[in-house]
């Protein structure tokens, strides 16, 4: 469905993409996971034909993003990271506008967008600018789908959106996937990676890894422990001094402490108590995507 070969893109001295290559299969829900500045948006703009790569080649549905851009644009759906609908048009006017551009009508494609559009239909006379964040997002997705695209590019659709709306949004994506639409999505939220069929971890214009989320997690090579105590900030500092420490990161309720060797948890606990820590708890953990990402990041940073 999508083929990317050695794509480079620079802006002045900044190398936004440093030779990205990968393939995305038809019907896949594929995620680019990485922080701001990783190159996600640049890559998306190349794939939807809004930016010409400096080097390399990309095709979407066998259409070249540079040479066949006119045909390509009629067949893909794109939801940019910034809300780009007309704020002073109503919900309905925005939809009709996008339908008109693609020479279709809201009525013709109502079935496809129905599950999403229904949730905002009661507000169809409201101006887009006056919608809440979650509703704007649903309208933008409806507009991106209005011409029944075979592939959908969603650039950080859930950034700045609360946890409930994020969950609902991913449920919508799962149902679109069932209808056979290929979905390419980017996100800075690591936990959303688990919801994709395959993911690419991207950082500083380079791919750290590409695989099914579980396979990436399985490659995590350290022993990982969750540790908590009364004073978490002091705990992190003490753990970093530990001779077995590979990394120690705050991680919600626990500190995630990784080591290259298997540790005696009772002994570790006793050591922490002897430094004055209170209510110490040590558990053994399985890594998650965020652990893997930070590990890969730290490794590449050390090489640089």
């Amino acid at each position: 469905m999508i083929q990317i070969q050695n794509v480079h893109k620079s802006f002045g001295n900044i190398q936004a993409l440093k030779g990205i290559s990968l393939e995305i299969a038809e019907g896949e829900l594929f995620g680019f996971i990485g922080p701001d500045g990783a190159g996600k948006t640049t890559l998306f703009r190349v794939l939807v034909s809004l930016l010409v790569p400096d080097e390399g080649k990309a095709t979407v549905m066998d259409l070249d993003v540079v040479n066949d851009y006119k045909k390509l644009r009629t067949q893909l759906g794109y939801m940019p990271g910034r809300f780009s609908l007309y704020q002073d048009l109503t919900v309905e006017e925005n939809l009709n506008f996008f339908a008109g551009i693609f020479k279709t009508t809201l009525k013709e494609n109502y079935e496809l967008i129905k599950p999403i559009y229904q949730q905002i239909e009661p507000f169809k006379k409201r101006r887009a600018g006056a919608l809440s964040g979650g509703m704007k997002q649903k309208l933008a997705l409806s507009c991106a789908l209005i011409h029944k695209p075979k592939v959908l590019f969603l650039d950080e659709p859930t950034t700045g959106v609360d946890a409930v709306s994020r969950k609902e949004f991913w449920e919508m994506l799962q149902s679109l996937k069932k209808q056979g639409i290929t979905i390419v999505v980017s996100t800075p939220y690591m936990e959303e990676a688990a919801l994709c069929d395959r993911i690419a971890l991207i950082q500083k214009g380079e791919l750290l890894d590409i695989d099914k989320p579980q396979n990436i997690i399985n490659r995590y090579s350290h022993f990982l422990y969750g540790i908590k105590a009364e004073r978490m900030y002091d705990l992190v500092k003490i753990l970093r001094e530990n001779t077995h420490c590979n990394s120690a990161y705050l991680f919600g309720e626990y500190v995630h402490f990784s080591s290259n060797t298997e540790l005696d948890m009772d002994k570790l606990k006793a050591e922490l108590i002897s430094t004055g820590m209170e209510n110490v708890e040590v558990i053994s953990l399985q890594a998650n995507i965020e652990d893997s990402f930070m590990d890969l990041m730290a490794k590449t940073n050390n090489q640089a």
Partner: peptide, 14 residues
């Protein structure tokens, strides 16, 4: 902490 990488996000919390 919106948008930053997971290591930087934690450094910020520290």
């Amino acid at each position: 902490t919106g948008g930053v990488d997971p290591i930087t996000r934690r450094q910020f919390w520290e």
